[in-house]
């Protein structure tokens, strides 16, 4: 009887582990590839163990520059449309529901980490103007689940230095499936692929 129970545990737990692998491998194999520009992050939180904290250009979205919705709350699921600008892909719109894809766009799914509010330009509270007294949402901080990159022991310092040194030295190749889920596919240094992730 104990062996039957153990078998049940093994099947269920192994199933969970394989589903984790399969979900990511599927995206790596069949997802559309985009290259995202990284930005320097606070050096104090750059390393936790053997991984780099990544911050992308699309991690902070200025709503004035984007199409889509304007009202968001913290921890909302959001869909961001990306379009290719030279090598890198940039955000063009932010939506609360999956938008219709136009042309070569890719939609990436994220969760709002912070919602920044501010008074709109030329709007002075309590003044007799056409604007309201309430601050409006000006920008969003969004997480995509690709903010950590695990690296071989000892390689961290060079990547950390590269990220801090100047913009565009480190970029991340990301695979995105049709639901907007993203998985890191590779790490590029000075445009050269330094690490590539096999599906299996």
């Amino acid at each position: 009887m104990i062996f039957v129970r153990i078998l049940l545990i093994l099947l269920l737990q192994t199933g969970v582990l394989f589903s984790m692998v399969y979900n990511r491998a599927e995206i790596l194999e069949h997802g559309k590839t985009v290259i995202l520009r990284t930005e320097p992050v606070d050096p104090r939180s750059l390393f936790r163990g053997y991984y780099v904290d990544l911050n992308y250009e699309i991690s902070r979205l200025e709503l004035a520059d984007l199409e889509g919705d304007q009202q968001f709350d913290r921890w909302d699921t959001v869909f961001i449309t990306l379009e290719q600008r030279d090598t890198f892909w940039a955000a063009t719109g932010v939506y609360k529901e999956m938008p219709t894809i136009i042309g070569n766009q890719v939609v990436i799914k994220g969760v709002t980490d912070y919602v920044m509010r501010d008074y709109i330009e030329d709007c002075i509270p309590d003044a007799v103007t056409s604007c309201t007294d309430d601050p409006v949402i000006t920008s969003l901080s969004v997480e995509y689940g690709i903010e950590s990159y695990f690296i071989p022991e000892g390689d961290g310092a060079s990547i950390e230095e590269a990220i801090r040194e100047e913009d565009d030295r480190v970029s991340i190749k990301v695979a995105v499936n049709e639901d907007g889920r993203a998985v890191i596919k590779g790490l590029l240094m000075d445009g050269q692929l330094l690490y590539e992730e096999p599906p299996y």
Partner: peptide, 30 residues
């Protein structure tokens, strides 16, 4: 380790939840 292999960082409490459920399953069945 699988999260590390695939660089998964999205909503990490779910990983702990899955582990807790797995441990509970063992606790019940053994």
């Amino acid at each position: 380790l699988i999260a590390q292999m695939y660089h998964i960082s999205a909503h990490y409490p779910n990983g702990v939840m899955a582990w807790a459920l797995g441990a509970l399953l063992v606790a019940i069945l053994i």
